[in-house]
Simulated assay, not measured.
Amino acid sequence: MQEIKISNGYIQLWASYLRSRQIDPLHADFLKDFKEQLQGLIDQPFDIQVPLQLLNNVLLSTRQHLDCPQLIFEIVQEIRPEHFGVLGYMASKSSSISEIIGYIIRFQRLVVDGSDLIPFQLRQHEQSVELYWAFLEERYNVLNELTIAAMVQLGRFILQEQPLLLRSIHFAHRPEIAVIHFQKFYATELKFSQPHYALELDVQGLNLKSDQADPMLLQLLIRQAEGEIAARPQLESTLQHAQRLIADHLRMHQQALKIEQLAEHLLLSIRTLQRKLAEQGTSFKKLLEQERVKRCDLLLQQEISLSEIAEQLDYSDQSALARAYKAATGRTLLQHRKQPKQDQR
């Protein structure tokens, strides 16, 4: 499993903020524990990959030293396209917000990368669109907060005098600082402890134009971005990605993922998804049952009734769970539940 890596642009953005306050990130006493790591990154290219933990550490130390709970919102005031590297320049040279969103979805690996990466998805509503992605772990909370704030501020920078037309911002975790700081920065509806992170934009805002649009330069940047993505190692096969998404959905939502939802998450048509799984000798139905059985094995070790397990695995009732489990493993649920007790004697 490849840990999440982030673009050096995040470190550069943080360093720009410190310098705006006449603080040298390489000589500040409160950052001395990170000096060796920072020396190899400060003033280096934005596309260098940085461990996420370093960003978490320096932001925490800075927030504590400056006694600044709203640090993230102050940092992003320094945002410029170059902090997102090639993707940032592409955004600044795009012709509309709609085009920018398309490039963010397509090239997000240039900014945040790793096998834990959850791809951005787009959901259409009647009067708005939602750019959303799933919650992973608490250690990614700061990265998600900084990324959302940076995207919003960069959008404002690109549009200049035009409003971004935000409808709402969704956070999968609870706020760790006073909500008033979020309200002051976003000036829109905020929702916390949601199933996913999301930026919701009014459909009227999708066609907002940038005065900096440059179609010819944009084509060159797209080719550069495609080359950088192609040079990176493949993260997960379609099969591995599908298995993880199905398992995560069972764990987080206690519902079986539908094939339409899986195809949408993978940015594939249903037919293409079926073909790719068939090439690997499996199918969506087989994958779903395999992940249900794995989850069932874990739940059987806990003090949970069989009817509760059936509900958590999205079976109609306990009998349906029992039949599916016997068909998949050749054992009954009671035989498996007794097994750990026999092993402990």
Rank of each mutant, 00 (worst) to 15 (best):
L26N: 05
L26M: 08
L26H: 04
H27D: 14
H27P: 00
A28S: 13
A28E: 15
A28Q: 09
A28R: 02
A28D: 10
D29F: 02
F30G: 06
F30K: 01
F30Q: 06
F30Y: 15
L31F: 09
L31P: 13
L31N: 09
K32G: 00
K32A: 14
D33C: 05
D33Q: 07
F34N: 11
F34A: 07
F34D: 15
E36G: 01
E36D: 15
Q37R: 14
Q37W: 09
L38V: 06
L38R: 01
Q39C: 11
Q39P: 00
G40S: 08
G40R: 04
G40E: 10
G40F: 05
L41N: 06
L41Y: 05
I42C: 12
I42V: 14
D43R: 15
Q44I: 02
Q44E: 14
Q44Y: 10
P45R: 06
P45Q: 09
P45M: 12
F46Q: 08
F46P: 01
D47G: 01
D47T: 05
D47R: 01
D47P: 03
I48C: 13
I48T: 07
Q49S: 14
V50Y: 08
P51I: 05
L52S: 10
L52W: 08
Q53A: 13
Q53G: 02
Q53V: 07
Q53M: 12
Q53E: 15
L54K: 03
L54Q: 03
L54C: 02
L55R: 02
L55S: 02
N56K: 01
N56W: 04
N57L: 10
N57W: 02
N57A: 11
N57T: 05
V58S: 00
V58L: 12
V58F: 04
V58D: 03
V58E: 04
L59S: 07
L59C: 14
L60V: 05
S61K: 08
S61I: 02
S61M: 11
T62M: 15
T62Q: 14
T62S: 15
R63C: 14
R63T: 15
R63D: 13
Q64E: 15
Q64V: 13
Q64K: 14
H65L: 00
H65C: 05
H65M: 10
H65Y: 12
L66S: 09
L66P: 13
D67Q: 12
D67F: 08
C68N: 13
C68W: 03
P69H: 03
P69S: 06
Q70W: 04
L71V: 04
L71G: 06
L71C: 01
L71A: 00
I72R: 04
I72L: 15
F73Q: 03
F73W: 07
E74D: 15
E74L: 07
I75C: 09
I75V: 15
I75R: 05
V76A: 13
V76Y: 12
V76D: 15
V76S: 13
Q77P: 06
Q77A: 10
Q77W: 01
E78C: 08
E78I: 03
